[in-house]
């Protein structure tokens, strides 16, 4: 699994952090999302797919 995150699109809703806290975090200065890992393990797969689905800015792409 490989994740790409478009920080220019991100609106800092934090939905990804709620969905997959082991994979996503937010920058202190403006809450924009950051990837803790771009290649998470299988155990995070469901959470990552959910994060991509609820991202309001459609800023997360997941390749299985």
């Amino acid at each position: 699994m490989k994740i790409t995150l478009d920080q220019d699109k991100c609106v800092a809703s934090g939905q990804c952090v709620m969905a997959a806290p082991d994979v996503f975090d937010q920058r202190d200065e403006d809450g924009i999302a950051v990837l803790l890992t771009s290649t998470p393990g299988d155990t995070d797969a469901d959470d990552v797919h959910h994060a991509a689905a609820v991202c309001p800015a459609v800023a997360i792409r997941v390749q299985d």
């Binding site: 800092a12 975090d25 937010q26 403006d30 924009i32």
Partner: peptide, 15 residues
């Protein structure tokens, strides 16, 4: 986006 990003930090999940 320019204005919104000025006020997003305090609404981050961990904050």
């Amino acid at each position: 986006a320019r204005l919104r990003r000025m006020v997003t930090a305090p609404f981050a999940i961990k904050r």
